[in-house]
Design a protein around this nucleic acid. Structure first.
Lengths: 230, 230
DNA sequence: CGTTCGTCAAGAGCGGTGCTCTCGTTTTTT
DNA sequence: AAAAAACGAGAGCACCGCTCTTGACGAACG
């Protein structure tokens, strides 16, 4: 049954993949706004309406590109972290930071799709949430591991009690971690992506040249904010 | 001579202003991608081509919207800081943070225009640079003031020497401040806008509810990173 | 006062977009 | 072999940014 279907479904899968490949290339060169179904069809030698046999709308094509992007970034971060000695927590932190930044700098338009301004009129479907947390999951696991190993100095501050109920969704990412460390983790998280946003979106143009060096210094500061001893 | 011209130029200035007002409203509801010259013209009862008498292209209209946005945000930050007792530096820091966040939350699409993904195909002209630094200028002055007043504890770390040459453009924003504090200021700067980016662009949806409270806690941590005693 | 000149709104039109519908053809299923 | 489903092609709709031309109007000058 599958074998009989495969004849048609195989070429369908192949064409679907070719569409996303071309679309991803257009995305990389033109940006999200420049993604055109007609241009994709033109490049494939098809008629524009034929694309709709594979993707019911432009937004659906965008959705698969977004999911692919989340997975690519998440996988890059996972592999970078996995290549580290797991008990060297400061090194894991810096490695994760560089993995995020490297991927973002290498794929600025795809990164913009994930962490930039939302595409107007586009509503991210629920399918994306599974892939979207892959990168931050690695981050949470690092903090959780470091806390469990006793490498994180317990901060002197204590977050306000009204924040306790807010931490529910985040506790799954950082199990076993006290709230003070948890919020410092969130701060480091936003600091990391805030920096990458600034770099990718051009806020450092004509201001900072050797961005990698400054980034490294800034992320080292963030590590000490978490309480990760250098 | 000016008086005789004024008859014509006054209605021209008024129409120009009406165009930007309508465009800003469309921007607020539809986002940057949904900004349509034809829609603006339709709402004004004009024909689309008439708009081009006032703005030679869509990008030019976008440019004035961006400049207006920078000025609006910058002015909001300036006024918030000016309303503070100037020698209460921790309070000034928190006030500035809230001013940025409040403005961004109130005008998400305009904020996205300033600090989100660059509009595809749009190249910001040099006119924008003057207005673009208003907010960060306030931030730099605060840090400079606090350092001069001795409120900032000199950090124990010393940034790598290779960063010294990178700090040139930033030293104008924070005159008289040692490099270690300067880079901590940059880190706090990116942490602030990184947080606001995450909130405005929806990364905290279904994760953090009372974002103002968490934001305040996070910015307090950033203040202590700068060395601003609470 | 009348003429000239610059500014203006309007309209038609070009090439582009996302998307829909229909129509034969081909492939799969019954 | 017949019925059903999937497919590519084409025409067409409404929209977009932008350009060009046309005719009307007001201001400045002779």
């Amino acid at each position: 049954m599958t074998a009989s279907r495969t004849a048609r479904e195989r070429v369908r899968a192949e064409l679907t993949r070719e569409i996303t490949d071309i679309a991803r290339r257009q995305l990389a060169t033109e940006g999200a706004g420049g993604l055109s179904l007609r241009a994709v069809a033109r490049e494939m030698g098809m008629v524009s309406s034929a694309i709709y046999r594979y993707f019911p709308s432009r937004d659906d094509l965008l959705t698969t590109l977004i999911i692919d992007g989340y997975n690519a970034l998440g996988e890059a971060v996972e592999r970078a972290d996995a290549a580290c000695p797991q008990d060297d927590f400061p090194r894991r932190w810096m490695t994760i930071c560089h993995a995020v930044r490297d991927w973002a700098v290498a794929h600025p338009h795809e990164y913009a799709l994930l962490y930039g301004s939302p595409v107007p009129g586009y509503q991210a479907p629920q399918d994306t949430v599974a892939a979207r947390v892959r990168d931050v999951t690695v981050l949470g696991r690092l903090i959780s591991d470091a806390w469990r190993a006793g490498t994180i100095r317990p901060p002197a501050d204590s977050p306000a009690e009204e924040l306790t109920s807010e931490a529910a969704a985040l506790r799954d990412l950082m199990p076993g971690v006290p709230d003070s460390v948890l919020w410092r983790g969130v701060s480091a998280w936003t600091a990391l992506y805030g920096w990458v946003n600034f770099e990718v979106f051009g806020q450092f143009n004509n201001t900072i040249e050797d961005r990698r060096a400054v980034f490294e210094h800034s992320m080292r500061l963030a590590a000490s904010t978490i309480g990760l001893a250098q």
